[in-house]
Design a protein around this nucleic acid. Structure first.
Length: 511
RNA sequence: GGCCCGUUCGUCUAUCGGUUAGGACAUCGGGUUUUCAUCCCGGAAAGAGGGGUUCGAUUCCCCUACGGGCUACCA
């Protein structure tokens, strides 16, 4: 089998959508699984839709996920250039060949003329008029004009496009890796524009030429391309490249979490979760979007979540890192139907990945954001807090938000619980317990636990009478990691200071 | 409208003619725990509808319904 070469070919028209990330992922997985090449090609043939910064965004997103291309605009390669706007001359040559071979033709029709044709056809009862075999001979093109007229118009600088000559009455069959055999009747196909009036190729031309020249073996792309694949096959035929045509795999769409239709960028704001990998800030006046990264997700968790949206390895295991996915990926298991985006499940994947990540990796992940939350924190403390928190956070932001009491003295008491738990004899108990805690040396979790537990049993108390008060006094809240571990990390000084503060504050709160 | 694709628990999915239709998220109940989380146990929950083919259909075929994509000098 030939070496596998796949490409991810986004258009730099904005931030990379999560569906695009999944397309990139499946391409990446197939390439890596077979030691093939993962190519990044930028499809910027539509100048009117070009967005500043989008290409950069795409590269940063791929890098964040760890899916760096083997070849592409930045890494170069033997098949460059990898940006279609830099390949303009190449397409010109191939489109000339097609015209010379009679497989394509030059058309001078203005938008108004095409519109007029459509109206004519509709009046004749044709539902969806097309520029095709039934109409092309009524238009102004190199099929209806003499050779002299054509060169004359060209010399005058009359704008023109090049169209693919589609022969009607044929059946084009494609063998899709996920959908099996799909057939199209060429009578339904229009004479697609190959070269636009501005001299740039359309997607269809550029795609086929590039995939062929770059020796792409598998085209993995979204379902929205399935319909035009018939044209693409016709193009491969016209060029005489049918024998080396790549395999196709058309991916199901990612749908809105509720309601109808595919997931859109607006859904993020609407439902309160990210639909982009990274934040996108287009500048003033433009809409900004939150990314999974900023929402506190691990790249592997997002990958894992996305991988399972429309694919599964067949077994019951669900947690995989990117490199583990490479091992088990098989395009034969790609699902045919669209998948609903489920943010709850994404959170679950993130939690699972956080729990499985070694502490030192979590440290690297958490460190950069600390200073945005806390002014006075030490790496030493962070290191000790991580093992206590890793099983109780779903996102990185949750870590920061739920560890205030470790890194700051600025956190509120859950006053409602104090009112409920602060009893007649509570002051005396807390007072005595505090005296006991002061004796502990070294101030370690095991010793704290022994002291507290002994105190409780010797006084015939219940855990419920003491622990909640202790916990609120030390952390402000009733939920959190092991209290004795927490005490050890806080240290004797802060533990005692906080309990003394509680002794003063609780009666006041109780009122 | 036309062409193409799709349709299993609320959601993501397994099943490649014979299963008590399995798992996961979410949900509900219970256990563990000083709380929360983790973890463990359990419950509820599905083959769009109608025809065929077959000894037997979730699985194969057809029709209908519904959903989606395409129908641009956008990708």
């Amino acid at each position: 089998m030939k070496n596998i070469r796949v490409r991810f070919a986004p258009s730099p028209t904005g931030p990379l959508h999560i569906g695009g990330v999944r397309t990139a992922l499946y391409n990446y997985l197939l390439a890596k699984k077979h030691q093939g090449a993962f190519v990044l090609r930028i499809e910027d043939t539509d100048r009117t839709r070009y967005v500043e910064g989008a290409e950069e965004y795409i590269k940063r997103a791929l890098e964040w996920f760890g899916m760096s291309p083997d070849e592409g605009v930045d890494q170069g390669g033997a098949y460059g250039p990898y940006r279609q706007s830099d390949r303009k001359e190449i397409y010109l040559k191939y489109v000339d060949d097609l015209v010379a071979a009679g497989r394509a033709y030059i058309a001078f029709d203005t938008p108004e003329e095409i519109q007029a044709m459509r109206e004519r056809e509709q009046n004749k009862g044709v539902h969806s008029p097309k520029y095709d075999a039934s109409t092309r001979m009524t238009m102004r093109n190199s099929l209806t004009l003499s050779a002299g007229e054509v060169t004359g118009l060209q010399q005058q600088g009359t704008p023109y496009v090049v169209r693919l000559l589609v022969e009607p009455g044929r059946t084009v069959e494609i063998e899709d890796l996920v959908r099996g055999s799909v057939r199209f009747d060429t009578t339904e196909l229009d004479d697609k524009v190959l070269l636009k009036g501005d001299g740039m190729p359309t997607y269809h031309l550029a795609n086929i030429v590039d995939d062929h020249l770059m020796e792409i073996t598998h085209v993995i792309r979204g379902e929205e391309w399935l319909s035009s694949t018939a044209h693409h096959v016709l193009l491969y035929e016209a060029f005489g490249w049918k024998d080396s045509m790549p395999s196709f795999a058309h991916l199901p769409l990612i749908l809105k979490p509720s309601g109808k239709g595919k997931l859109s960028k607006r859904d993020g704001a609407k439902f309160g979760f990210p639909v982009f990998p990274l934040a996108w800030d287009a500048g003033e006046g433009e809409e900004a979007y939150l990314g999974f990264k900023e929402a506190g997700f691990l790249p592997d968790a997002v990958i894992n979540f996305l991988a399972f949206l429309g694919w599964n390895p067949g077994g019951e295991r669900e947690i995989f890192t990117l490199s583990e996915l490479v091992e088990v990926f098989d395009p034969a298991h790609i699902v045919k139907s669209g998948a609903r985006f489920d943010y709850e499940k994404a959170l679950w994947f993130n939690q699972q990945h956080i729990m499985r990540l070694p502490d030192d990796a979590l440290l690297e992940w958490l460190r950069p954001g600390m200073s945005a939350y806390y002014t006075d924190w030490s790496e030493e403390q962070l290191k000790r807090v991580i093992p206590l928190m890793k099983e109780r956070i779903k996102t990185r932001n949750e870590f920061y938000e739920n560890t205030r009491f470790f890194f700051s003295e600025d956190w509120p008491y859950e006053e409602k619980m104090i009112r409920k738990k602060w009893k007649e004899d509570s002051p005396a108990h807390l007072q005595n317990l505090l005296a006991g805690l002061k004796q502990i040396d070294p101030f370690e979790a095991a010793a704290c636990e022994a002291t507290v537990k002994t105190f409780i049993s010797e006084n015939g108390l219940s855990f419920g009478a003491i622990m909640p008060l202790l916990r609120i006094g030390l952390t402000g809240t009733l939920k959190g990691p092991d209290l004795f571990q927490t005490m050890e990390i806080l240290g004797r000084e802060r533990t005692i200071a906080r309990l003394e503060r509680a002794l003063e504050a609780f009666p006041r709160i109780k009122g």
